[in-house]
Each structure stands twice: as C-alpha cells, then as structure tokens.
Amino acid sequence: MTVLINLQRLLLCIALLWCLPLAAEQKIVSINIQAVALEQPSDYFVTLLKMALDASKAPDEQIELRFAPYELSQARWIYLLQHESSDTVIWTMTSKEREKLLRPIRIPLFKGLFGKRVFIIRKQDQKRFDPITTRDQLGELLAGQGAHWPDTRILQLNDLPVTTASTTDSLFKMLMAGRFDYFPRGISEAWFELAQRPEDKDVVVEQKLMIVYPTAIYYFVPKSNEALAKRIERGLERLIDTGEFDRFFYSHARTKAGLEQLEKFPRRIITLDNPDLPEETPLDNPRYWLTLPGS
C-alpha cells in the first residue's frame, strides 16, 4: 500500500513538472570594450558601463563584456569603430570631428570634470607657477598632451604651446626629463594617476591653478549600432533617476580625491574657449553636470 501511494505521488510530481513552462533560455549579449583589463584599484568606465547595461537589459539577457586583446591609440579605436567593429564601446572626450565619425551617448561620464584641469609638474617647479594669473602668462610655458587628444587642439586654439606624445606613460617620462613644463589632467585623473605611480616621486599636482573649458567624456559606439547606443543611454538615464550614478561618481577613487583636494585648496581659474565643442552638447541640462565654485 505504501509503495502504491509513493508511486502515485511520483506520477503526480512528474505530471506537475510536465505542465510547468520551460525556463526562458538566457540570451547572451556580447559587447567589445576598449579596455584590455579592469583598471586597478577600481575601474570607473567598465563598471559604469556594466551598471548601465544591467539597468537597461531584458529579463532574459545576460551581458558579457569582452576586453580588447591589446592596447590601441584613440585614433586606432575610432578607425575600428568606423570600419571594422559594430558591437564595440569606447570612452573618450567629445569633439565635433569625433561626433561626425561615431555615435555619442551624450551623458557626461564625469559630470564635466574632464574640462576642469589641474597640472602635473616637476616638484621643484612650483615657484614658476606661483605668479601666473592669466592665459598669456601660462602661454610662456609648454604643455604636454596626447597626440590624438581633443584637449591638444583646445590648448592650441587658446594660444597655449603644446608638445605631444602617443601615450600617457610617454608624457610622464617626457615631463620628468624636462621636455615640457606641465601636464594638464582632469580632476578625475590627476591625483588618481599619481597614486598609481608611487615610483614617480619627483612629479606632483601643481597647487594654485586650474584651467576650465566646457567638454565631456562620453561612451561612443559605431553609427551603425543605434540599438546599442539607445540601450546605454537608457541605462545611464535610469542610473541618474535612481541616484545610483551620483553615488558611484562621488564615492569612486577617481573623483573623490580630486573633489576633496579642490574643496580644501581653492584655485585660480583660467577659462579657455572650446571651439570644438559640438552644438548638441547638453550644457543646459543640470542633471548631467557638476558646477564647482568659481568655474
């Protein structure tokens, strides 16, 4: 009798399982990114992108980010997105030229901090910067920037002499060798980068100046992949709506140290024009930007 009851229960379980709908198969969405590995100690761009994609994915989707096999210059990445890769995301500063070539997601990833720049200098050179208050005075010194960075053209259009190199590492080496006088870096870069380069003890962040111009760093995708652009845009907007974007921004090592330094030590501001800023830049949308005192 017990055996019969157990058999009936087993048949009932099988019948119930047969009636249940099959679980939806997970769809893997693979996206290539420009990073070769997660930035240490904590990645900003990759983490924020994953947050945005997770915020905009369908219930049956699984997001897979695929790292690049090797480092490439910004110019090379832009070429690849134009001609060879339809499912790739890069992050770079905007310009009129770049927005002609690629599809920008016009939500500033650092709330405009990339256009607020302090200088990395040789430690012994602080006295050379102490008396500077104007753009003309700053123009007597030589800046170093990346060969393909939009910042380079902005400085040149403001009559500030610039020498270039292909990589950030090369620029640090050139600065220490005396090849130029100052290396402008965004608030979200300067202190963070020096913390990652403890061996470079002879370079510091200059103490009194900041140049300011309107710009933004965005995620970019190929113009052929509007669906990916809309997905990222939708995800970022949701992160802003829920407050997750700001919590991430203000707590991250890239931004936290720089903002704390600016609060403790106010700076003289030299304002520059940015003729390369696209007209579509959403400067009038306050939810995207951080306004610093005096800027």
Rank of each mutant, 00 (worst) to 15 (best):
M51P: 07
L53S: 10
D54E: 15
D54A: 12
A55M: 00
S56Y: 09
A58M: 03
A58N: 14
P59Y: 08
D60C: 07
E61P: 11
E61G: 12
E61K: 08
Q62W: 02
I63R: 02
E64Q: 12
E64V: 05
E64D: 11
A68I: 01
Y70G: 13
E71R: 14
Q74C: 02
W77R: 01
I78T: 14
I78E: 06
Y79W: 01
Y79F: 03
L81C: 10
L81E: 03
Q82A: 13
H83S: 14
H83G: 11
S85I: 00
S86D: 15
T88H: 08
T88D: 05
V89F: 05
V89Q: 01
I90D: 13
I90N: 13
I90G: 14
W91R: 01
T92D: 12
T94R: 00
S95I: 00
K96D: 07
R98Q: 04
E99F: 06
K100W: 02
L102I: 06
P104T: 08
I105T: 09
I105S: 12
R106Y: 01
P108H: 03
L109D: 06
F110Y: 11
K111H: 08
L113Q: 03
F114C: 08
G115H: 01
K116S: 14
R117V: 04
R117N: 15
V118H: 11
V118C: 14
F119C: 04
I120D: 10
I121A: 13
K123A: 15
Q124E: 15
Q124F: 05
D125S: 13
Q126W: 04
R128F: 04
F129A: 06
D130R: 01
P131M: 00
I132Q: 05
T133Q: 07
T133A: 12
T134Q: 09
T134P: 12
D136S: 14
Q137K: 09
L142P: 07
L142K: 08
A143N: 08
A143Q: 02
G144P: 09
G146D: 05
A147C: 05
D151W: 02
D151P: 13
T152G: 11
R153Y: 10
L155D: 08
Q156Y: 04
N158P: 09
D159Q: 13
D159H: 15
L160R: 01
L160A: 09
P161V: 02
P161H: 10
P161S: 14
T164C: 05
S166T: 14
T167F: 05
L171A: 10
F172V: 00
K173Q: 13
K173P: 05
M174L: 13
M176G: 15
G178I: 00
G178F: 01
D181K: 01
